[in-house]
Amino acid sequence: MEIALSSQLQMQAVIERPRRRRRSRKSIIPGFGLTMGFTLAWLSLIVLIPLSALFLRAAGLGWSEFLAVGFSERAMAAYRISFGTVLAAAVINGVFGLLTAWVFVRYEFPGKRVLNAMVDLPFALPTAVAGIALTALYSPNGWVGRFLEPLGIKVAYTPIGITIALIFIGLPFIVRSVEPVLADVRVDVEDAALSLGARPWQVFARVILPAIMPALLTGFALALARGIGEYGSVIFIAGNMPFKSEIAPLLIVTQLEQYDYAAATAIATVMLLASFAMLLVINGIQAWTRRKVDQ
């Protein structure tokens, strides 16, 4: 997953590398037909044909039924909860992920390398494990939950719990996309601004933030994209009450278990289109970043 952030940038750069070689000069490297053929066949078999099956099935429903089951009251509530919690989590991650990246890049402290490696934990830890661990922590008698309970804060089995799980899932996206860019911010520019009398927060807002904004936005969008579809880490802590704490991916599973294939297909199609939209946004941000860099 984490490869998502950076190599996407790199791949784009590589793809758009000017074609030095004209078609007339044939490469002596063999195996194009074989590797390309296998790549396309495997891609079609595993990804393209199954996804088309979903779209064809959805198209088979017809507009009126698609709208009726894909945007039913319960589905709308699930979208609201899914998009609301994922947005809240991404905003919180935007602030604390940036803080974490800042601290890792700028300061030295004991245990830094180990903690930095820990940031990738959400990529490596199975989502179900994260889900039950967070639930154990934030349930009313859990390590953290028992201190929040007297304050009247219920985390587990509420949208707050969903947000907590999504913060866990999204954290590395922000940190890992901001870190390398932050490390590249030229310190002499900051020193210049400081020596010209700028306050530290002004330097941050006027010099550093604009430089890292594209990376921050990319991380934000990647965290959103991952969070919208997230299932395993959320369902344990969510409580899964329809209209209250039921996320859209869970509603798909619920409908499927009740053999309501039409509803499952329609909601899945909406979610898939949302993912595609996020992908476009991410590519847009990266194209914009490249233009900025080129200037």
């Binding site: 194009f32 579809g229 395993g232 991916p249």
Partner: peptide
């Protein structure tokens, strides 16, 4: 190792499963 048209489309398609919800991946 080779140049061909539509390379960026191919790379995007290979990346696609990252943006699909696991639930949708099972459903298909």
């Amino acid at each position: 190792k080779f140049d061909f048209r539509g390379k960026s489309v191919l790379v995007t398609l290979i990346d696609l499963p990252f943006s699909i919800s696991p639930v949708v991946a099972g459903l298909v």
